[in-house]
Structure formats: structure tokens, C-alpha cells
Design a protein around this nucleic acid. Structure first.
Lengths: 359, 359
DNA sequence: TTGTAGGCGTTATCAG
DNA sequence: CTGATAACGCCTACAA
């Protein structure tokens, strides 16, 4: 039990050397059929299990990938990406250590230090808070992969075509007949850092403007709200989305549709709409972004869907490539897909009745 | 860089033996102040970082805990518990390996095998699918902790007082004036396994009945719906909650309030209510269970809140105790807390107007 | 086809 | 106070 069998133990049990047992285990090299059987029998009898720690020391490979997430608890977005990474890692005999950073620089730093000591073979960041952490990892010779962020550092990354995502959403709304389309998002200014030339926030906003222009529609500042993704601890988690929608509902001319750059913000927006006694999409259409909790809302959210699993998978692939010695950083860009569900429809002006019949 | 400094390297650099460096590092034993300074300087200069893998081999402690989750992507419930475990582990210099089992027996088994090879010091299950996996871990001498499930195996566990949770919810509704209270949950029969004498599903249902009886209210079978937690892949994730609410709305006499044993089910129920053009809580009050996505819904859900972080933390503590050699299994029972938000109110009969004024 | 032996980086035991 | 030195379990030349 507590004293588990070792290679040596198995070898003795089978009356051979450790080298022979190793050969049987790794299925390489020549082993006489009869010997093999004896060894396999010994393995079974002793209940031998290779010791990954010892192997790691010898091979200088821990077969472990560190996965840093902003927060799995504030936004299921991250959990979904992590699943993609985990699946791919498992398929390749790797194991993933997950670390929630909770937007804390110190925690990120601590995690990096710790995982270097653990000798992880690579790190994946969704997404890094502080470049310095990355530099520390780099100095330790550990490759890093970025998700949803491209940095001014030579690391691989998997990103999403955010502008195109916004454009998809606007096209959908315009096709439904909307001409007055609002925007709720995170303020690019707040999310701009030196290490990241163009923020995702900027891209989503730019796509919104671009989409409107392409449709020959102007945009008005009073139906654009730029805030933050996450509320302070004492506020409800959806506070910023609520604020955004309250702002838009007070506009001189209320928008008939709103593009919101995160499902979590959209959830808050829906709460305000609900409170106001308005119906979605009858009175106002809403498009989310991210494809995570949108499925749970009423009505289920039409959303610019990120291929979250795929992103995680690609991140892992990039990490594995780097581990294998591929030193040229690659950036993989994935496409979003507009997932049409219940929260979008024709604008009020084009409807017969404002409310569905009650059953 | 790629060739990182070792204890030996540091020792040479400082002109001392490895033993001395080790003493400095672990701050035990006697080291002359001057030597200590020289060693510390050498550590800084070489950029030395202890090698956790080598240490693990030597000490026979990987400082790692394996954390098995049913699924982080279907229900944020699990992610939140995992956070509690992670935080506590980190505080104790442990690192957590997360494994999503996705309700797959094979995957769970594979994970257990792999983590045994990785020599994790303990495993936490939220929650185990197959007892055999647990027996395998036990045979390997690895302690296991159960979350939200007590098994007929001698392992520690942290559970929640589910019956009391249901009772809290019923009391709240009764106080608001409700007399006809429905129930949507998972069918205990479907979740009963030989290794688990009493299922959580049974407990929640029993608490519901108990609460009603205590209030002198009977219950009617046509407003009790028992289904499953998770929908088939081709269905929307909230399918079972939707089904449940559709069923209840068709009852001869519609309930004025419903207790639903999971926030995910409640989300589906809300969607149906919304579709039907009814208002919450004006027309019908809803109480969820679990305290995860309820915050995102419209209206934000009143819910029987599990202390998820705390559960994860306690699970980790139990694991650490077991690692430390505490072999007597302990069961920690935590209390739920009713979190009152917007989805509960007085029943329609006690209200003046059915709908709030539109702004 | 099989065995021997050195070493991966630590820790820990004993002498000095 | 400090230094040798022997494991920990596995891998892998190199020898036989």
C-alpha cells in the first residue's frame, strides 16, 4: 500500500534487471517474448505504477502545463477555455495546473514563481496581468502562450477576430431592421497597457463603428456606454451592465438594439430592461459577446460566440509546440460565430403587437 | 537560462557545501551569519530556484492535490468550490491539479490513474462517479475527500445541510404569504447509487415536504416535477428546468411560488415564465438552490446559498489533515444561507397591481 | 537480448 | 557550525 512498488521491485520480482523492465514498459528495444511475459506478470502482481516525479527529475520534463486564468468565478468564459486546454493536454499525457489570479498582480507573480519551482514545461495565460511575470517565466526558460491578447513580447498567442465579431452582430441587427443601435462595453482607455498595443476593447468598439458605417448608419455618443467588466466586491456582479443599460434607456432617443461586449454585462443590462417592464426582443434587441452565460438568461442571448474550447485547445497546441522546441512565436487568429437565439428580433416599429398573447 | 542553477551550483558559487545552502534555505540548523550572507548572495546571483520535482522525489511529497470536478462548464457551482480549495492549497504551499470528469466514468478512472502516477498527495472529489476509482486511490495509499456526498467508504467529506436549506426556502415563502408552493428538482431515483445511501436529491425533496408540513400546508403531486440536472448535448442546457416549469404552469391550480433545486434549473424555469409573459415575483415567486448563476438572471434569484468557497476550503483542510496522517475520516456539515434577492415576493392575491408601472 | 552503473537535484544522517 | 555521502526512482549509454 503505502510503500508502492518500484522499477527495482518489479525487476527483482521478475528476476531481471531494471533496464529490462524499462524496455517492456516503454515497448522499445528488444525483449524476448518469454521475458516480457514474466515482467508483465510481475508488474501486475506488484501493482507497479511508474513514479512520475522520479521520471520528471530524470527526464527534466514534468509533463505539466501551468494555466493562468483571470477568474473562473466571475465569468464562466475562462472555465470554458480552460476545458479546451485541459482536454488537449490530457490527450498528450500532460497534466494542467490551474491558477486563478483574481486580477491580482501579486497572485499572478506568486503563481509564476511557484510554477517555475514546480518546473512546469509551459505556461498559458488567459490573460496575463503583468508583463514582468512573463519576463520571469521567460528568464527561467519556460515558454508562455497568450490567449485573447497579443503582447509586445515574442510569445505565441491565440486570439479572436474581435472587429469581425462586432461587425457580424451589427449586420444581423441591421438586417432585422434596426437603425439605432447602442453599445455597452468596457472602456478601452481603462484596459490599455503599454505591453498591449491594441486592446480587445478597442477592437470590439471599432468593429461596432465599422459595422454601422458600412450600413450607412451613424452613431451617437449618448447610446455608447463605456465602463468596466467587473464590479467592485460590494456591488452585484452585474452592476456595470446595469449602469450601461440605465444610461441607454435615458437617451434622448432610445436605441432599438444594443450590442454588449460581454455576456456578463448583457446579463446586467437584461436585468434593467426587465425591471423597466420592457420586453426583449419586442421592445429592444440585445446581442451579447463571449457565449458563456447567455444560454441561461431570459430570453437566451443572441451572442457573438467565441470558439472557447477551440481557443483553449489551440493554446495548448502552441504550448506543446514550444515545449518541443519550436521557438518561433505563432499567432493563431480564430473567427467568432454569431449565435442567434431569442434576444434579437425586429424593432418595435416593424411589429404588429408589442406583447405576445398570454397563454 | 535553460540550464538553471542547482543547489550544487549555489554551493560552489559560495564556496560551501550543499548542506549549508540547504540550511540557509530552510532556515533551520546553525549557520554562521557571515556564511549565510555569502550563500544568500550566491542564491541571488545564480538566480537559483529550488527544484520541486527533485524535492518531491526525495521527500516523497509532491505537494500537489488532485481535484476532480463533475464539470466546470455545465455549472459554475463547481468552479466556485474549486476556488475555495485552490486558495487554501496555495496558502499551504500546495498546488492543485484540476480534472473535469464530464460525468464520464472512463475519464474519472483515467484521471485517477494519472494522478496516482503523478503521486498527488491527496484527492478531492466533487463528486466521484464511481466508487471503484476511490478504491483504486485508496489502494495506492492516497487519501480522498468527498464534497457534497457521503459515501459508504471511510473517507472524509464536507457536506451541506440540504434538508434545512429547503426548509429555509419554504419558511421564507410561507412568510410572504404563499400557500401553494411547487417543486422542481432532480429525481432521487435517478441519482441513487449503492455507494450513497441517501442522495442530495432526496434530502432536498424531503426538506421541501418537511417545510410544508411544518407550515401546515399539504403538497400536491401535480406541482412537483422531478427530472435531471443536465440536458442532453443537443438540447439547450436549461432544457430540464424549462420542462419542469411548463409542467407546473399547466397544473390545475398554478403554484404561486416554486422551489427549484439548482440555479441552472431555475434559469430554465425563468425562461419559460418569461416566454409566458408572466412576471417574477409578481405572478410567481422562484427560489433557486446553489448560489451560482442566480446573480446573473432577471430578476436576480433568491436562492438557498451554499457556502461554496467554504466547502472547497474545508475539503482542502480535510485533505491536508489526511496527508498529515490523520486517518480517522471526518464529516463536516455546513449550513446553507437563504440569499434573498429579487425573485420572491408576495403572492398575486396579496398584491394591488399585477405589473409595475412602465417608466 | 540483457545487465551495469551513473546521475538528475534534493534532503537528511552522521561525522568532524 | 560545516561537510561528506547515501538515498529517492527512473532513464539510458555502454558493455556484455
Amino acid at each position: 500500500m503505502s510503500k508502492s512498488a518500484t522499477l527495482m521491485g518489479v525487476a527483482e520480482h521478475a528476476g531481471v534487471s531494471t533496464a529490462t523492465v524499462a524496455r517492456v514498459l516503454k515497448k522499445n528495444g528488444y525483449v524476448k517474448e518469454e521475458t516480457r511475459q514474466r515482467v508483465e506478470e510481475a508488474i501486475r502482481q506488484t501493482g507497479y505504477r511508474p513514479n512520475g516525479v522520479a521520471r520528471g527529475l530524470r527526464t527534466n520534463r514534468s509533463m505539466t502545463i501551468g494555466n493562468f486564468l483571470r477568474s473562473t468565478t466571475h465569468n464562466p468564459f475562462f472555465a470554458e477555455i480552460a476545458r479546451g486546454t485541459e482536454d488537449e493536454a490530457l490527450r498528450n499525457d500532460y497534466t494542467v495546473i490551474l491558477l486563478n489570479m483574481e486580477a491580482s498582480r501579486e497572485r499572478e507573480r506568486l503563481g509564476v514563481e511557484r510554477l517555475i519551482e514546480r518546473r512546469v514545461d509551459a505556461m498559458v495565460f488567459t490573460y496575463a496581468i503583468d508583463v514582468e511575470s512573463l519576463d520571469i517565466a521567460a528568464a527561467a526558460g519556460i515558454p508562455a502562450v497568450q490567449v485573447e491578447r497579443v503582447l509586445d513580447r515574442p510569445t505565441s498567442a491565440v486570439v479572436v477576430d474581435n472587429p469581425a465579431g462586432s461587425v457580424q452582430a451589427i449586420e444581423h441587427l441591421v438586417r432585422l431592421g434596426h437603425r439605432r443601435i447602442g453599445f455597452i462595453g468596457a472602456d478601452p482607455v481603462l484596459y490599455r497597457t503599454p505591453m498591449m498595443p491594441v486592446s480587445v476593447e478597442e477592437e470590439r468598439l471599432a468593429g461596432y463603428r465599422q459595422g454601422l458605417q458600412a450600413a450607412g448608419i451613424g452613431y451617437a455618443d449618448d447610446i455608447i456606454f463605456l465602463g468596466r467588466y467587473f464590479a467592485a466586491d460590494e456591488d452585484p456582479i452585474t452592476a456595470w451592465g446595469q449602469m450601461g443599460m440605465r444610461h441607454l434607456l435615458q437617451a434622448r432617443e432610445r436605441p432599438t438594439a444594443v450590442l454588449i461586449t460581454s455576456d456578463v454585462l448583457a446579463a446586467g443590462a437584461l436585468q434593467v430592461v426587465y425591471e423597466a417592464g420592457l420586453r426583449v426582443p419586442d421592445d429592444i434587441s440585445i446581442v451579447g459577446f463571449d457565449a458563456n452565460i447567455g444560454r441561461f438568461l431570459s430570453p437566451a442571448l443572441t451572442t457573438v460566440s467565441h470558439p472557447l474550447r477551440e481557443m483553449g485547445k489551440v493554446a495548448c497546441e502552441l504550448a506543446l509546440a514550444a515545449i518541443a522546441g519550436d521557438t518561433t512565436p505563432r499567432v493563431v487568429r480564430l473567427r467568432t460565430k454569431l449565435e442567434v437565439r431569442g434576444s434579437t428580433g425586429a424593432p418595435p416599429s416593424r411589429r404588429k403587437s408589442r406583447r405576445p398573447a398570454e397563454p
